[in-house]
Design a protein around this nucleic acid. Structure first.
Lengths: 219, 219
DNA sequence: TCATCGATCAATAGATCTGTTGATCGTATG
DNA sequence: CATACGATCAACAGATCTATTGATCGATGA
């Protein structure tokens, strides 16, 4: 006795839901949104074991959220398309609006480091045209190399202290990293402000910028 | 040893993912999108036991997808807001684009019953203005009563056979039901066409129509 | 061909999820 | 107050998920 076709479809969609139903996998999706990565490389970023990472990736693949290709002895994974980013944005949106626990974390941690309104895409575009702003990419060098905002300077967060001289006379700094909840840019903005540098944060990260159809640079 | 704030957030968002990770719960969300319902009523619609339905509802509530209020001895559940519908649409979209198994069901069942392009919202609006079209709501009477498209005629699918006379001389019929995968409108269109009635299907259901900001009637 | 390295597989234990059953709670009504 | 009814709770068994371990596979390069 076959179940109804609708439930059969919902069974498939539920597979996607379950794939989104684990914090580590959401983290992996955020990292993959920066650019394709091998299993080991991703495991290093997320702090999971290789085998565990591989299994999570296969779950994401079965759900159609990521795709893979072989390059030599590496298997490189990437998000299947920008709709996956849109799905994550919808998920995060519902969480921010409807879950008190989410708002508590946002207040206690994120707003404590950056209470100012983040800079929107349009705002940043307008200011860069006037040459008023230094765009700061605080992600690790490999992610910057894969793709970054046009004209952005790369200073990974853990080097920021030692390389302050490179930006300390900029009239305004806008920092960004991997996405809306990436801690790097929050920490960076907080650190820069303490040194009296006029710093703000981009509302979202590189993947959202690209998904909005805005230009990126590589290399 | 606290985990990073980002992972703490992702843990919360994963809760929403898991709530979406069960076919019955997706079905329940579709039903709740028609209007608020008590636990028993919803259980009857979905074919689940009352206790099971109650527990699923609490999971959805913990994830912020539904909300509830007490009315006498009933506890009425409803979707928290239209963003939940948007999230479901994003989920379904990724599934349709990236999962072969979804496309197989769509081809084998749904397209077999309605191979024609569905009518869009704009198209329907234009045609109703000209009075050319009969809008047919094939959902059960209680859902029609809660909310329906302006001027729509209600003939629940299981009564369609006996009430064909009410629509058989309409120049064009557009049928709709609960959502994009609701089988009622597919079956209706298939049945009407067999009788030589010029019938097409609305692209999505009542909840999507309302979420698009278009007018609805009650009663 | 062999050694190496990245990735996957297989097996496992512990945790979580699912649906059933029967008891219990809260509200309205006789 | 007693009863009825809608909803929730508590406990349980069976299924599924998660992370670890060690073995295996596949491609590369000496």
């Amino acid at each position: 006795m076959s179940t109804s076709p609708k439930l059969k479809l919902y069974e498939e969609f539920a597979l996607i839901g379950r794939a989104l139903g684990n914090a580590h996998r959401l983290d992996m999706l955020e990292h993959l949104a920066q650019g394709e990565k091998g299993v080991d490389a991703l495991a290093a970023k997320t702090g999971l074991s290789t085998a565990n990472t591989s299994q999570h990736l296969q779950q994401l693949k079965r759900a159609g959220l990521v795709d893979s290709r072989r390059d030599g002895k590496f298997v490189l994974y990437r998000l299947t398309d920008d709709n996956v980013l849109a799905l994550m944005a919808a998920l995060f949106g519902v969480g921010e609006r409807n879950l008190a626990s989410v708002n508590k974390v946002l207040r206690d941690y994120f707003q404590a480091r950056d209470s100012m309104e983040p800079v929107t895409h349009d705002e940043l575009l307008a200011r860069t045209r006037d040459g008023l702003v230094t765009v700061l990419d605080v992600r690790p060098a490999d992610e910057y190399a894969a793709e970054h905002l046009p004209g952005a300077v790369n200073i990974p967060l853990d080097e920021l202290e030692n390389r302050l001289s490179e930006i300390e006379d900029a009239p305004e700094v806008v920092a960004y990293c991997r996405g809306p909840y990436c801690v790097l840019s929050f920490e960076a903005v907080s650190a820069l402000r303490k040194r009296g540098i006029n710093a703000r944060r981009l509302k979202s990260g590189l993947p959202e910028w690209r998904a909005a159809g805005l230009p990126v640079e590589t290399g």
